[in-house]
Design a protein around this nucleic acid. Sequence first.
DNA 1: CCTAGGTCCTCTAGCCACTAGAGGTTCAAG
DNA 2: CTTGAACCTCTAGTGGCTAGAGGACCTAGG
Lengths: 141, 141
Amino acid sequence: MDFSIGELSRRTAVKVATIRYYEQIGLLPAPPRTEGQQRRYAKGAVSRLAFIRHSRELGFEVDAIRALLSLQDNPDQSCATADAIAKARLAEVESRIASLNALRLELTRMVDECACGRVAECRVIETLADRSHGHGRLAQG
Amino acid sequence: MDFSIGELSRRTAVKVATIRYYEQIGLLPAPPRTEGQQRRYAKGAVSRLAFIRHSRELGFEVDAIRALLSLQDNPDQSCATADAIAKARLAEVESRIASLNALRLELTRMVDECACGRVAECRVIETLADRSHGHGRLAQG
DNA sequence: CCTAGGTCCTCTAGCCACTAGAGGTTCAAG
DNA sequence: CTTGAACCTCTAGTGGCTAGAGGACCTAGG
């Protein structure tokens, strides 16, 4: 009926170390232990961890996941909060896409214009050295 | 002719702490110091730091920037390496855009289908809890 | 010459979400 | 009872900074 952390890891494709980490930061409740202090999980742990995993795949931060989990635990509440969290994440994703598209454009230009001769005439290096560009945000990822 | 770290910071829009960090990791050469051990930069530092800043804006990692800088310092070399670095970065950006587009799709669906009633019927929560999806990579950013 | 205060110095610790490894214990199969 | 895979805790490292403590320096005004 209950199973080990390794089995939970296999069933959710979440690494053992990560599961322990999630417990440590309070995303997963601490399960009961055997006499020898090994964790034993019930079935519910699989769905909770799958929820967390899917949320992380969608890029939700741990704090957001905490909020989403506590909503899931109280099904009678309004889901406005869940909606707001998802919409905020969507907005983030869209703005990341926009800035990555801008990056792509600049990188494409650099690469296309490079005649691939000596560094002295290299457009890649030249573009990077060019000081005449606005002070945008640093790219993440 | 030479100026302080604060002045360099103002001229490049790179924070003082970051400049010191770049020196520490060997991206910027250690400049001469005053008798009281304060850094004094020459004009060249501005363009080198601007190069670094622009590279970071384009998302190049520090190791890649190190390589690009050493190419810039040897203008007679072939620029094939610079080209390869830029192309690798472009490929990264394109794959990030693709996966963010997939995320956007899923988030949009979640948000659109949410009738915004109680959590019990919330599509956002339901989607996250759904275990029937592939084991994709975790989203970064 | 003296002082005020803005700027500079080094060093350490924190951010995020893990991940890796050391060094030791427990469990289940044979 | 033995073996060895899996488990335990704890610490430290990743990348690229950023913040803050606690103190030294530098320059302009009086």
